[in-house]
Design a protein around this nucleic acid. Structure first.
Lengths: 155, 155
DNA sequence: CGTAATTAATCAGTATACCCCGTTTCCGTT
DNA sequence: AACGGAAACGGGGTATACTGATTAATTACG
């Protein structure tokens, strides 16, 4: 009898479900999803990005970034325009309200993290973060959305 | 400047993307997704389950279980029928081909796990599994799909 | 014994995540 | 300057994941 609980993939999927549920609960006042928040954070760190840059910074599939930006645009949190320099690109940036919400949400986001990790001692918390980072960096090129590593982010 | 890489939720989401990508690659010959494989495993361990039992065993939302079963049914891997004892319930079971594929896939599934965890030493692998299990169990009741714990699985 | 509460499933709707393919625009080479 | 390849994006399609409302069947209670 093979238990799903012995499979890393199962634990990762469950952890993902749980994290999304906690995030949505803590951030219910903003009605922003984790992925939307990741895109807004990417735009906070690097305004006026094209969609592929956002995809790399936030670790999100390129086509999905376009969908997320469209929804944020529709809610007035993001503004999109064609690049003058390269008319293939669409440049996105946070609006004033998007900026305000992105900054406001930091507290709620930290609360969500704290709730998720609360069952672990500080040492275990630290260990888990380190192991997950190691695994994500080493396997970064799998998936259609390889993320830009922090080291290369200063561009 | 807040880096996404310091947020557990980001690492979990990326880990999930990576795992799905590796699984689909290793199991491409079967054209079965991780969630479909989880459902098939649940039916392997507990044949003739209703949809809510499957949802609990596989840690999947109950509406999603219905969708997954419909696709597996259409491919002839699962057979569904109304329960005689309780006509609200729909009972599902693997067909002969579903059974064959579920058993066949174990090797590919193990390969996917090995590929995913390869960057980690055996000690780190073990530690990560333990910490993820601890976190999932402690937070199990978040998300719409709280899973049945292994301890209570002997039903 | 009949009605109220509960339960299993379904349906409609939204959001993520990916694939394939086509269009527009740009760039390097000739 | 023309052309071929590459890059950025868009559209169509599939699968997961969840919410809220609804329907049908069962159970529990007075």
């Amino acid at each position: 009898m093979t238990s799903l609980w012995e499979r890393p993939g199962y634990l990762i999927r469950r952890l993902h479900q749980i994290h999304v549920a906690i995030f949505l609960e803590e951030c219910a006042a903003y009605n922003i999803t984790p992925v939307q928040y990741a895109v807004m954070t990417a735009l906070l760190n690097r305004p006026d990005s094209d969609q592929i840059t956002i995809a790399q910074d936030a670790g999100i599939d390129r086509t999905n970034v376009a969908d997320v930006l469209a929804r944020l645009d529709q809610r007035g949190l993001v503004q999109r325009r064609r690049s003058e320099a390269d008319r293939r690109m669409r440049i996105a940036a946070l609006t004033d309200e998007g900026l305000r919400i992105a900054r406001d949400m930091e507290h709620a986001s930290l609360r969500a993290q704290a709730t998720l990790m609360k069952p672990l001692s500080p040492e275990k918390h630290e260990t888990l973060m380190r192991l997950m980072t190691e695994l994500v960096e080493a396997n970064n090129d799998y998936s259609r959305a390889p993320a830009r590593l922090p080291a290369e982010a200063a561009g």
